[in-house]
Write a protein that binds this DNA or RNA. Structure first.
Lengths: 236, 236
DNA sequence: AAAGCAATAGCACCAAAGGGCAATCAATCA
DNA sequence: TGATTGATTGCCCTTTGGTGCTATTGCTTT
């Protein structure tokens, strides 16, 4: 069914690592199978070994030997990628280490980050995880654990992109509204009735209805409940 | 301003640990100052030292020398506490260790958990944090770090209780609805108009209006937008 | 059995929402 | 400068929502 059977290098005896993934996510995980994985490690041997594994698993593995190398290339592309992706990064590296990379990536729309480290102190793990890393793999780690984590990372990336797209769409559509339309809709969302909106905006009732109508059309909703949901879901 | 000045035992030179707390949270943090902190550690000296510190800070510190001792007492009270609270627990303990406690507490409506450990392996920290622990303090740790973490924990506990109360209230109020009222409201939330609701429920239009009216009153809303928000916010 | 309550529903009225049609006015475009 | 476009508005009609008053029915309480 999956490609696991073709992998002699991987311990495939237990699937327990996947148990935190719900049945509902399985479909999505299928779509995530072909995701992009940025691999950063200063040890060429590890890079090559992991790249082989990930390639075999069907992931598009993009290897870098330093965080700077990755950052240089990414700032051109502005950390955008059309599809699920994540970063798998070593912690102990010269110049920019994994935690430093994490700090730099924060607030940059970075994808999920998975850290890994050799004989590392617990404090690094704590710092990394508290700063939002999805997992902290301690070398040598189990391939199953790695793959499960990456799968989780790609699912999260995918969900984030859906959300981003959704709120982008909403902002897009909101930007189509004229100022009046925007104001009217805001008052509608506050529960004001047309008459009061007209009064407070100092325009005619008929005009409020007009703007309300156009705004509904531009936002792609027909019913009030849909309007409220649209804004409510893209708020949290 | 705070009681910090009275504490000679505590390094109060830097407030940096608090920087992740927004201005908006400050009010709430005031209310959290007097929170309950369950302290679990098998080392009596540490328990006594930490209890002193926490007592001085104004927290209600409740010490236990083993996780079992705590669990025994809590299962009677069903892990309920009217107000913000959290658990500060050592990882390395005989019988039930911190991670085991964490596993037992999950799905039990447990409060935020802060783990601490001496010369611990990174794997324990990773496991603890991945399982949802708020922080993993490595002994010896900075008192500021501890207090900042506890403050965060109590704020989170407080917010959780607010949410729980809110959705409990909603369920409470929903349970006041008769079946008809419930069905009508559900259809209203789907955007159906009264006429169609009447048709599909095979009752008169006037009756739909009647149930709608009573349901609004029972749910404590007057406007449609409020109804939608009420259900939307208690869904996610 | 009488009273009370919830569900149902008819009648009537008013307020609010939705929208078609047409006109005015100002700014912008060709 | 004439044409176009967008914002604004009035007039008018229909649909929908909200409510008061009343009445019937069936079940529960006293």
């Amino acid at each position: 069914m999956t490609k696991k059977a073709d992998l002699p290098t991987k311990d495939k005896s237990k699937d327990g690592a996947l148990k935190s993934i719900t049945i509902a996510d399985k479909e999505m995980s299928q779509r995530c199978l072909r995701g992009r994985i940025v691999l950063i490690d200063d040890d060429p041997e590890i890079v090559s070994a992991l790249k082989s594994l990930l390639d075999m698993e069907g992931y598009a593995c993009e290897p870098y030997l330093s965080a700077n190398e990755f950052l240089k290339e990414q700032f051109l592309n502005k950390l955008k990628f059309p599809g699920p992706w994540c970063i798998l990064c070593d912690v102990k590296m010269p110049e920019v280490d994994g935690l430093e990379l994490q700090r730099q990536l924060i607030n940059l729309g970075a994808p999920p980050l998975v850290l890994m480290s050799g004989a590392s102190g617990a404090s690094e793990a704590v710092e990394g995880l508290r700063a939002g890393a999805l997992d902290f793999l301690i070398k040598p780690f189990d391939a199953d654990r790695l793959l499960a984590t990456l799968q989780r990372a790609l699912i999260i990336s995918s969900q984030r992109q859906v959300n981003t797209t959704k709120s982008f769409d909403l902002n897009e559509r909101i930007s189509l509204l004229s100022k009046r339309e925007f104001d009217v809709i805001n008052r509608v969302l506050k529960g004001q009735i047309n008459r009061d909106i007209a009064e407070e905006e100092a325009i005619a009732l008929r005009t409020v209805k007009h703007h309300r109508h156009l705004a509904f059309k531009k936002l792609g909703v027909t019913k009030l409940v849909d309007l409220v949901r649209l804004f409510e879901q893209n708020k949290a």
